[in-house]
Write a protein that binds this DNA or RNA. Structure first.
Lengths: 257, 257
DNA sequence: CTCCGTCGTTCCACTCAATGAAACGGGGGC
DNA sequence: GCCCCCGTTTCATTGAGTGGAACGACGGAG
């Protein structure tokens, strides 16, 4: 009689818990640093009870934190763990003093980034007092084809990665002033020859110029890139090339230990 | 005939996957930034096949990375996610310029930390050229009872937390020069009254003095602590009190936005 | 005041994703 | 040759994970 309908039961195609958990974590972004349960469940595409259960466990583990309002935030535990990433804080630790030198000697911003797939991830940023506000955020991603750091990382990346980036037509990218296809290819060759890159890009009207150089490990593999960013109205960017190259070498030596 | 023995089957008491995954991540430490599968399985107390399966999934998700040697490392993806923690990089972003001022104006190291349970977690550290090497690592933990930052965070923490710390007998702690029980209690009262803390501790023979002050939010809740660390042979630490207090207020204002 | 929408939450019958003992192949030391 | 430890694959077993439904609380609109 009591016509019992199937209640719950597994999802059509089961998806590993870990994938879902990291999808939850991935829902946060600079624009959305805090999220309600409903938003989380919506963004991650998970049923509410599932999102709740996962979020609670993540809070218990310290990966998330919960404000009094009930909204969720990324937790400190993740920072503790992430600070052990050799390509992150490990690298940063060695590079920081040299980056400070570079900041005082040159431009408005000094950036340190590493390649992750077909993007550059910003590991550290130092900014001079009263520098132009830039959109670059530590932990954020930037394109490989239209930034100084990106060009360096791309030029010394495996062929496979280069082809993947070159296959895309970037001509619609407003910020990109580095050309596409053959043009970009020539640029990369130049970067390999000179062992530095100079690149301009347009950001909300103003054009910014970056000078970048590779950081290498013992075996001369490029592991990161340092760059100085200056506004176009400043002194000729070429002035900074020797300083950037020198600092990149210094960091390479410090990181080789 | 083919005497089939039960193969595998669930563990005696099933343990959530997420707990295990984070246990794996928690196995890494400053001394052990890279781990082999065997080490991972050993440290996390997981059967080898289970450790392998989890580690592989974490690599797929970017939470771990694998060197050519096969050893595992913390991955960059975690840094990307962690950089969205409001109490981590969010706070840091606002504090950094003021911390630089403080560094140039005063001591050897400038520290920014927040409380996580009964420990202080270091969110940022700036060090002067040629400063004493200190064991403090960004992302690392320090005790609440024996550091300047710790005392500030403890003094303004909920009663519950204070009692938990006070209940422990710290007299065996070699580094602690702040006393225990009633002594420590009096110290905390003083910190609340003065709104700054001065604390010394012994580190490998040399004694270091830190001057710390609270960073507060709009509602005057203490959310972090800034401190300057100087070697004992330097100028009187008290000299730095006004600077530290002023910078703490500046950061409070900047973080209130 | 009532109504309605949305939010976080609990319940629980249903399964498949997760499990780990066993067995395997390969490399390094002795 | 032998042994030992490493990472890996296999597969019978089962409880951890699941989500539709239902609930109480809050708040804004009527």
């Amino acid at each position: 009689m009591t016509e019992r309908r199937a209640r719950g039961g597994r999802p059509a195609r089961g998806e590993p818990v870990l994938d879902r958990a990291f999808r939850l974590l991935g829902c946060f972004s600079p624009d959305r640093p805090t999220l309600s349960l409903a938003a989380l469940s919506e963004l991650a595409g998970l049923p509410k009870p599932t999102a709740l259960r996962l979020a609670r466990k993540l809070v218990e583990l310290g990966a998330l934190e919960q404000a009094e309002s009930g909204d969720y935030t990324i937790g400190l535990r993740l920072l503790e763990i992430a600070s052990l990433a050799p390509r992150g804080h490990g690298l940063r630790e060695n590079a920081l003093p040299y980056m400070e030198d570079l900041l005082h000697a040159t431009g408005q911003h000094v950036l340190l980034s590493v390649r992750e797939g077909v993007a550059a991830v910003l590991v550290e940023r130092l900014s001079a007092r009263g520098a132009h506000r830039v959109g670059y955020r530590v932990g954020g991603r930037m394109p490989l084809h239209s930034t100084g750091n990106g060009l360096v990382l791309l030029a010394f990346a495996p062929k496979r990665v280069q082809e993947e980036v070159l296959a895309v037509d970037w001509s619609a990218d407003e910020e990109n002033l580095n050309g596409t296809g053959a043009e970009l290819r020539a640029r990369l060759a130049a970067v390999r020859r000179n062992r530095f890159a100079v690149s301009s890009r347009r950001k909300r009207g103003v054009s910014l110029t970056s000078v970048a150089a590779p950081v290498v490990d013992r075996r001369k593999n490029t592991i990161a890139a340092v760059s100085v960013i200056t506004g176009s109205e400043q002194v000729a960017p070429a002035t900074h090339i020797p300083a950037v190259v020198a600092v990149a070498r210094a960091i390479s030596r410090a990181a080789a230990l």
